[in-house]
């Protein structure tokens, strides 16, 4: 079996969790909420995985915009990285909550 990293299994697990949520909505006939679920579910996993790149991109974009010297070598702070993660997890959790709502 080909070696897969822990992150790969984590992403796969999150996708499986979301698939269960979607199945639950279909069984409960909550078709109206499926678009809401998808809005939160689809971006949440890439947001979680690429948190560092996205936060760094954002920080550098701001630094390039605000300073003359540019942003070569600028690294995001711990606070920004954690906030990025927290925001993404809230996105993911909201998708799961929507999946459990029964109309």
């Amino acid at each position: 079996m080909k070696y897969r990293s822990r992150n790969f299994w984590m992403v796969l697990f999150l996708c499986v969790v979301l698939a269960f949520g979607l199945a639950n909505m279909i069984v409960n006939r909550s078709f109206v909420l499926i678009p809401v679920f998808l809005i939160f579910a689809i971006p949440s996993v890439p947001l979680l995985y690429f948190n560092y790149s996205l936060v760094r991109w954002n920080v550098r974009r701001n630094a390039n915009w605000d300073t003359e010297a540019g942003a070569d070598g600028v690294e995001p702070s711990e606070f920004r990285l954690i906030m990025g993660k927290v925001g993404s997890w809230i996105f993911f959790a909201f998708a799961l909550i929507v999946a459990l709502i029964q109309l």
Partner: peptide, 27 residues
């Protein structure tokens, strides 16, 4: 590990526990 793409160890533990709980509720 926050300074690279992917998940930290704490995140992984939390996500596996919460995800397993969610799957249980759905099942």
């Amino acid at each position: 590990s926050l300074r690279r793409n992917g998940f930290t160890k704490k995140e992984r533990v939390l996500a596996y526990v919460a995800g397993a709980l969610f799957i249980l509720i759905v099942l």
